[in-house]
């Protein structure tokens, strides 16, 4: 069995998860990445997506996060999510609503920069939707 390390998922409202895990898959801003024990110190922003953690007793935890950032250090991995919801509470309708909101943001955007950002969020959310639909 792989070595375990401490993983924490925190949202502004509360500490969602604090577990010993063997691996975590995070949706980094520049692509998904996996973290195992002894990963070199690493700091990345995250795009909307799914955080998957495999605990050392075989449980998996899946959370939908809406952006945030991940801090991988020697003492463990911490994900500071802007918003995090357990995958079990996520359904297609919820995602459709999120996409709709994001699209409205894009439509309302006043500058090119904010529109680009909003468009990016829309496309990222669509990816998540596809992944959820496939699962």
């Amino acid at each position: 069995m792989a070595e375990a390390f401490q993983f924490e998922l925190v949202s502004p409202e509360r500490l969602l998860l604090s577990e010993k895990v063997t691996s975590v898959v995070l949706p980094g801003a520049e692509g998904e990445f996996g973290v195992g024990a002894g990963h070199s110190p690493f700091l990345s922003t995250m795009r909307p997506g799914v955080v998957k953690a495999l605990s050392d007793n075989g449980e998996t935890f899946e959370y939908f996060v809406r952006g945030g950032f991940a801090d991988v250090s020697a003492s463990g991995t911490t994900v500071l999510a802007e918003e995090a919801i357990p995958m079990s509470e996520i359904n297609a309708e919820f995602l459709a609503q999120q996409i709709k909101n994001a699209e409205e943001d894009a439509a309302d955007a006043k500058t090119d920069e904010t529109r680009q950002k909003a468009d990016l969020v829309v496309s990222q959310l669509r990816e998540v939707e596809q992944a959820v639909a496939a699962a």
């Binding site: 520049e30 070199s40 110190p41 700091l43 990345s44 922003t45 250090s73 020697a74």
Partner: peptide
């Protein structure tokens, strides 16, 4: 020393 090893994605500045 610990700090120097940090990797950043995208860049330090962007983060």
């Amino acid at each position: 020393a610990d700090n120097a090893l940090y990797e950043y994605e995208p860049g330090e500045q962007e983060i």
